[in-house]
Design a protein around this nucleic acid. Structure first.
Lengths: 350, 350
DNA sequence: TTGTACGCGTTATCAT
DNA sequence: ATGATAACGCGTACAA
């Protein structure tokens, strides 16, 4: 039942054993329906007995599908700053899981394509090779290069700005849930002086969340600090820095700080606590993501749950089912719902 | 400077442009030294102008390396129990990062091969296919199947029992660091009644840690609870269950609980706190792993730092450099050092 | 429904 | 030092 020698069986051996031609074997493998059931049986049996697995290289060469999709993400440059790396990649990890799961179900393999900050453009040819489709993580490739790539190979953009007209985009809902956060802080907790701790200044997700937060707050008559000092890099350490600088000004702190993601919220809480402020008694803090530790923290973090793993699995589904199978470029945006999760850090009792 | 059409340049076009044969181009690409400098120049120029990138499918087919290694791990079956999955995979995530990083440096791609609990054995042929080497995560494959696989393809075992004679094994140091934990609790904190909360009963890592802990404690004259009730599954929820059952007995609790991993420690602290016990004032708790949240917890977790990502990167290095390049099976065990990290949960002031 | 034969882009083995 | 040319394993017209 298992190929017992060291050499892998080829389609020729299968054909010989089944008493058919390699063309027939190929047809069986690829699910053609113009095959007599009896013949199919023969072939399937031979495949089973020989432990035959199609050679992916040969498939790729001859123009067929390799059943491989590649996930491209930016490998963080800062190897020394261990904590940063670890934290910033949690997101990627979850997405990888999602993509991998779907790939497994669909009989695809997942090729991980981390790229360093510098060699992005030059590696396009490399990326396109050896796979049937591409999943590009947000901000991995310069916007202008996306159409180039998408033209050459089925491509799905993940958690991007959603503005690309050249490829399918899968992202999470940012606006409505952030409106809920702001509304909760202002109407339920009666806070009137708020702040929004943003992620990277050029992150579409962060921008959307900040805008939604600021707009809502202003509409409800609350003030929001969200200027130059309130940008960071999505990491805990970055948030600590922001908070400490804000504390150093000596000015009165806001009553609540909404953060663009959970890791920043964790850093913020840490810094505030170190400074002698109690969360949420003295100041409320909220996050965004709902990473696994959010519920285990003290106080448990009020945040917005994001289906990160699903983000990956949906991207893979779309890529495999539509772009690859149907062979036609599909332009659409898929927006996955998020969910506001009230815990303790906003001041609510659990 | 970039291939401008949709079709990639081939070695034939390069040869034509450089006025040489494809054989010469191939030699240049692969760094043969029997080439006249002038000729090499010509070829390099043509490659540059055409934006030529070797087709790796063709490379793989013609017998060369595909520059792909595959990481095989067990995809957890329990998709519904979300938290469990998330937690149990943190480890795999970090390892994936490490492997991926090294692969990138060496010009290799990483193929992710998650396997479901059921189809492990049957997928051997699949796993061996389409890659140059295999990294097997602990307990992915039944012990008896490892030699079979290792005979067919260069293989590295990760974090395993270290008993396999059939393949290189990379793992972390468990014994010495656990001895340090026990010694610290007993000699520095003067605890005499301890407990060890283990992981899976059949986990080599968990067993080594438990044995080291129990042995050391007994040598130093302390008592250790480590019987049937103290086994769990490496998860927080599992630890909660163990602690709650122990509390339900009504018997006096130990002064300190050492856990086989951080996630269990987190669960233990959670359960103890819920029961009105203070950590570390009433009872000390230690972990193992040093996951990123360990330092952010309250109390910060005293634990043993494990270089998880390095575990992956070292495995990849060994696989690529030795097994693949030298083409000869290398039998060796690599043990990566761990580091005892004292924080607060043991009762120390930070 | 099934078989034959060619091409995919490399590497490697011969020659030269 | 370099050039022809044969594999490598598969998909797929084209034939039958």
């Amino acid at each position: 039942m298992v190929g017992d020698s060291m050499t892998r069986a080829t389609i020729y051996e299968v054909a010989a054993r089944a008493g058919v031609s390699i063309a027939t074997v190929s047809r069986v493998i690829n699910g053609y329906d113009s095959i007599r059931p009896a013949t199919r049986e023969q072939v399937m049996l031979a495949i089973e007995q020989l432990g035959f697995v199609p050679n992916s290289s040969a498939r790729g060469l001859s123009g067929g599908s390799q059943n491989i999709i590649r996930l491209v993400f930016k490998r963080s440059q800062t190897e020394d700053s261990f904590e940063l790396v670890q934290e910033s990649l949690l997101f990627t990890d979850a997405i990888i899981r999602g993509v991998e799961r779907t790939c497994g179900k669909r009989g695809y393999s997942l090729l991980l394509g981390g790229v360093d900050d510098d060699n992005l453009d030059g590696k396009i040819d490399q990326m396109v090779a050896n796979c049937d489709g591409l999943i590009l993580l947000d901000r991995t490739l310069k916007e202008r290069l996306v159409p180039t790539v998408a033209k050459r190979i089925p491509t799905v953009l993940l958690a991007g700005s959603g503005r690309s007209r050249s490829a399918v985009t899968v992202m999470v809902e940012n606006h409505d849930s952030t409106v809920q956060v702001a509304t909760h802080l202002i109407e339920d907790h009666r806070f009137s002086r708020l702040a929004f701790l943003a992620g990277f200044a050029n992150s579409p997700d962060s921008m959307k969340r900040r805008d939604a937060f600021v707009d809502t707050a202003q509409q409800l008559g609350a003030s929001v600090e969200s200027g130059a000092g309130w940008y960071s890099d999505y990491t805990s350490l970055g948030a600590v820095r922001v908070i400490n600088e804000r504390l150093a000004t000596g000015a009165e702190m806001p009553e609540a700080i909404a953060c663009a993601n959970d890791q920043a919220a964790i850093g913020a809480i840490h810094a505030l606590t170190q400074a002698g402020l109690r969360v949420p008694e003295d100041i409320a803090v909220t996050g965004f993501d709902d990473i696994s530790m959010a519920r285990h923290m003290t106080p448990a973090l009020t945040t917005v749950h994001q289906p990160v793993e699903e983000l990956g699995s949906v991207a893979a589904e779309v890529l495999i089912d539509q772009a690859i199978s149907q062979r036609k470029p599909v332009m659409q945006n898929i927006v996955l719902p998020t969910r506001f999760v009230i815990r303790e850090s906003c001041g609510c009792k659990e």
